[in-house]
Write a protein that binds this DNA or RNA. Structure first.
Lengths: 212, 212, 212, 212
DNA sequence: CATGAATGAGTATTCATTCAT
DNA sequence: CATGAATGAATACTCATTCAT
């Protein structure tokens, strides 16, 4: 898959390799992921993307109508994936603390294992002057799901009544920030980070976060 | 007919020049603030900025050399302001809870009162593909200051020992997210938001956040 | 309405593109030759060049990256040509006088037959504030070749020992000046000019230049 | 005179130094000479010139209407000077050989002593696409004078009948080329160069140029 | 479907020149 | 006369997008 997408500086005219029709879309997506991660959405050009490909300029427009559209597809892809993982993780939780911890762990682990996707998202929070939600439609959707779960938990008395919107926002915000923090270091420890965030949320600072 | 001759044929040649000299810089800054807030740094062009002004293209370059430079001036300005407010607020705190609450309150209030600045910052987190720190030098500096205060508090035993980096990140993340959340609504309530965030941090969900 | 969207609204969208691909480069070169001849390198703009063409702005950059580069291509082209002609002419000379006369004749004839190239070179001696050698790399190379031939002739005793550098410079200078002189008139006579210059060089004024 | 013209990076607002009214023109001329020599006519901007001055932008236009005009004034100045020197030198000649040698010596010496003027002229031969004669009005005038002297010499039988136009052109061409040649080296020897050129012109190569 | 040359609107920036002070 | 901020036309170059092959 790597071999396919890397531009080999050949005049790329064999008409064999490129004929792997269905995979052209993937080649573009893969190239775009890298380019967006490196240059950010605003800095990336369609040319940058196809240049990382064996394809020709025009071919791009057979699969996407826009730079916008590739970006969307890209975030959709990983967003969907992450959302599914999160959803699954939450289903297995027996109590709220497990629910939170599983969420954080899934989230941190996902980006720890897909650093390029992390950089893609990271470089492009807040892009486009707010026309598009900072976090992409999937993150929004993911947060909405979580909020529903939280509201359900409140109704069931698993956690005290609270402003679910703020609570969800807080959970998300902590996730983003701590993710940034741990992705900067060398020894990325999703486990530890998840436990930290969970304890903080369940019992607060006074709860002696590390104090088990 | 000389090659080097530039034609001039002015169009907009009224007494505009007589306008308060020093205020041109402000006019540009003000226009830039709006434009960046609306279009984001990447989407904004120098032309967009001067177009919101009575000034001519070239005049921009009498005050700034770059789009970059106006942006910097803008974030510096508000960043410095907010940082000073935060620093002052923290100094007056008697205990850690007050420290946290004052910080949140100051932060939320500042943006509630300067919504355009909020949008400016909001539209430009993560701009430029990561070349420039997502939060601008001032926010970074502000967070570093807060972290020092937190570490001091830990040493003094005011709060349990903890990973100060993660804790600071978490506080910042919650601030960002909740700010986003409240800035979307109509009835912005910095007080309530600050109290919510503070309780969450001090005692966690189980602490009965709303439990006054 | 998306910020990144560029509007297109073409205007000049006929079958122009169908035109002989390879000939676009030539079209640009031809236009550039004329423009440089008329306006000089410094006075000419890339826009001036493409304006003399049916092509669009961007097309220029598909073939050349610079004004510099077209100019180089242009002088290279004719420089190489002239240099080859000169070299060939000298090879056939049996004695030094023939050597000189053949050189002058070739030189004068070449520009008499390519007046546009003459104007191109003429308008651009000394361009760019000396950054680029006044006479272009080919003329320099051509003079260096001639100098080697002259030094050889000295060694062989065909002509008296002399400062070859000054001698070559003098030959070149006479060529330039007389070329300018004859290109201004109506009845251009390369033969006569070559004979004049040759006699002057061989026997000096006292030699009775016109004296056949 | 140097102190006056060098920009001292002060905000230059004393209003004392600049009031030396008559000398402002000179200051501009001196600055322009340097700038044109360094950047060439095309590359130089009016701003470059005034920047080397203690004067303000607008002041330039109190003395000259154009970049063109300063350049003209500059070449006029030195052209006039050189022309006078040449004319004087020729008057003292007793025979044609002295006439030629005096001319060359004066010419080479003048530029050897005014290298900045040399670079000014050198960088700007052929500027402006032929709109302005390559050599400036003064050089043209100087050559016309010389031509008249040559024609007079022919009538008087001092030198053989010849095409005076070509002869003058040749003399000028040799002067330019050899000047270039000697100005490149370290040990500039106007005397030797003048003798070389003179012998070449009087007796040609076969005359044994160096051979006395 | 693939190709890639052609297109031209758009952007940042410069600079000669004016003119209110 | 001197000043220098203001002006805006002009330039080089980019890049999303089209379309003939």
């Amino acid at each position: 898959m790597n071999i396919e997408t890397r531009n080999t500086t050949s005049t790329k005219r064999d008409g064999k390799r490129a004929s792997n029709r269905a995979s052209n879309r993937d080649a573009i997506l893969q190239a775009a992921r890298t380019v967006f991660a490196e240059l950010g959405y605003g800095g990336a050009t369609v040319r940058d993307i196809i240049r990382r490909t064996t394809l020709a300029t025009g071919t791009f427009y057979n699969y996407f109508t826009n730079k916008e559209e590739v970006f969307e597809a890209l975030t959709q892809e990983s967003g969907e994936e992450l959302r599914a993982l999160l959803s699954a993780a939450r289903q297995e939780a027996d109590n709220f603390e497990q629910f939170i911890e599983a969420s954080y762990l899934t989230y941190f682990s996902y980006y720890a294992e897909n650093p390029e996707t992390y950089h893609l998202v990271r470089s492009n929070r807040g892009r486009d002057g707010g026309n598009i939600n900072m976090r992409g439609p999937q993150v929004t959707a993911g947060l909405a799901e979580m909020r529903q779960d939280i509201e359900r938990a409140m109704k069931l008395g698993m956690i005290p009544q609270n402003d679910a919107a703020l609570l969800t926002a807080a959970i998300g915000g902590v996730a983003f920030s701590i993710l940034d923090e741990i992705m900067q270091g060398d020894k990325i420890d999703p486990q530890g980070a998840a436990r930290f965030a969970t304890k903080l949320f369940m019992r607060g600072i006074d709860g002696g976060i590390d104090g088990a």
